[in-house]
Design a protein around this nucleic acid. Structure first.
Lengths: 334, 334
DNA sequence: GACCCGAACTGAATCGATTCACAGATCGAC
DNA sequence: GTCGATCTGTGAATCGATTCAGTTCGGGTC
């Protein structure tokens, strides 16, 4: 029922090939014919069928982006950066939310595979190396986001999480804290592991850092651990906490704030990671390790587009340095 | 180069039609053949080509969702609800971010139109009535999200914004505030207009509410207005502020907190809208008008799928009632 | 044994845009 | 006046999965 190229061609009195040329290579067509075709398109309300174009082209003009958590402002910022860069090249981005769930992640990879997307940007949770290889075999490049490629098989854009973890822990030590704890998980997320490792390296010994694992990097999980800490006798509480990300830090803050006897930063100093917008507006403004989120997204997209244009390109690893932003939550005790 | 149905058929020693049947109507095929085809698919690493399927089917299995701001947790929650409902029907969701920009919104509508999406969910900023009519003519239903349909031409799922605005203003009056202000904009967003109107109705007269317009519903804009308010002589400041959403409220809070002489809620009480996760973790925990965000998304998707299944269906309007959540930011003055 | 029926499978036609080898037309140069 | 070059425009072939009118075959009925 909806009009196709054929209908447009007929109404404009030209062939279908000419209509296609007007759409894709207007310079090959005389001005007079161009106007006639444009008029016919307007009259019929013709809209190109993307499926037919893609079928012929062999690949779509969409880029798939899979993030660990859309509700984390860090990832929406990354997505925004990626989207802006893609838009400049006439491509669009489909955002998938794995929710730190390997099954959901796999489902999105399947979907993008069937859609023959132009490329895939992914912040992985499961073991995706094999999947990404298969995609590449089908001509679909992939770039890891916010996570360094373990082997050099695939390009990646990330932040030096080990350095970030070290900065956070060192800062807590510098403000006089001695009983440090790390809150975060699951360990299947490499960023988490790297951040713990960085914190440990600042302490000089593995046994001096208490690790309180969470099942996800969410406000809810932070709140859960925060309650557990508040329930301890004061002497058993840590006096400095490094949270795997700001969401967890915000949860900790919520739980601790409800207990009048646990004061931040008086009794416990707190450092987060990501420096999301809300960090500076928290109950106690949050000290955090900042990542250049939009830049990460934009850079990853750029690497991806390069590889899409030239499949032979060798994988590249881009690593940004994080930056400590000090606020009230880690002020020295009185 | 990648394997197609034809290759699979050849390897399994059957016709292409049979391969298609194995994929789409396995019950029509004998178990023995089914296994042979499955084996061939695995051997060749065959992956269906979505473009070809869609071309034949005439529509895709994707739903387009356009939100005003992906960085607003309210909308990511809505998206999550919509996505969950869609997944239960084997459909996926493409998220588009209009950023309160009519041009970006139009671009996404064009994209979804070309993609012949299964349907469109939209929280509109510009005048989209005409666009949605054209989509419908092409067999693509649309449902408005977080915004009631002006005329009854299109289905919608929303919250009673007028009631929400009234609740917020009434609450401020109840806590003894008298010089009320509303912060929010732009007026092209109907929700904003409705919330002001609700607040006015609680006051009984239009002139008793000062309106401080913003260009967008963002933390940044809130911060800007907050600074302007803090710069006034104390007597000229409002003593109760109703922010169009929590992002603006958080921005106001950030700006006011930086000025030691402006205390919340002592000098100024503050009420937001949406009750996002971060509201309870703000510098001063935020009183807010809660919307059932995930439920809104889920319900909108349900209406949309109904209409996609039966194009003749009459438009329906679902309106949820908001709920006031009182926290520290609106405590009565000492 | 003739006939019918359903189950299992076949393969050509189809969806709509793009491409590309080819055809006409126009113009300038020699 | 002829040849070649350039510029416009043509239309059949193509991408890959699905569909549907047919074919084949085993078995049941009278």
């Amino acid at each position: 029922m909806p009009a196709g190229v054929k209908d447009v061609a007929q109404r404009a009195g030209v062939s279908v090939g000419t209509v296609s040329n007007v759409l894709n290579r207007p310079d090959r067509v005389s001005a007079e014919v161009r106007d006639r075709v444009a008029q016919a398109i307007a009259d019929l309300g013709y809209v190109r069928n993307a499926a037919a174009r893609q079928l012929r082209a062999g690949r779509s003009t969409t880029i798939g982006l899979i993030v660990l958590d859309v509700r984390n402002p860090f990832f929406t910022d990354v997505a925004r950066g990626a989207e802006d860069e893609a838009a400049e090249h006439g491509l669009s981005v489909t955002l998938g939310n794995s929710d730190e769930n390997p099954a959901r992640e796999a489902a999105y990879l399947d979907l993008f595979d069937e859609q023959r997307v132009h490329g895939v940007l992914i912040s992985p949770i499961g073991d995706v190396a094999g999947r990404l290889d298969r995609l590449r075999a089908r001509g679909i490049p992939a770039v890891l986001v916010d996570r360094a490629g373990a082997d050099g098989r695939v390009s990646s854009v990330s932040v030096d999480d080990v350095a970030g973890g070290r900065m956070a822990a060192q800062h807590l030590l510098d403000t006089g804290r001695r009983r440090l704890a790390f809150v975060g998980g699951p360990p299947s997320i490499r960023q988490v592991v790297d951040r713990v490792e960085g914190a440990r390296s600042a302490l000089g010994g593995a046994d001096r850092l208490e690790v309180l694992p969470t099942d996800a990097l969410t406000v809810l999980e932070g709140r859960r651990i925060g309650q557990a800490i508040a329930d301890r006798p004061p002497a058993a509480r840590p006096d400095g906490i490094f949270a795997a990300n700001d969401l967890i830090a915000m949860g900790l803050l919520q739980a601790l704030a409800m207990r009048r006897d646990v004061e931040v930063p008086g009794e416990i100093a707190l450092v987060g990671f990501d420096d999301i917008d809300f960090a500076s507006a928290a109950v106690v403004p949050l000290t955090s390790v900042r990542q250049p989120s939009q830049l990460i997204g934009r850079t990853a997209m750029r690497l991806l587009l390069d590889e899409a244009a030239d499949p032979g390109l060798a994988p590249r690893q881009v690593v940004f340095q994080p930056e400590l932003v000090v606020r009230a939550s880690s002020a020295p005790p009185p």
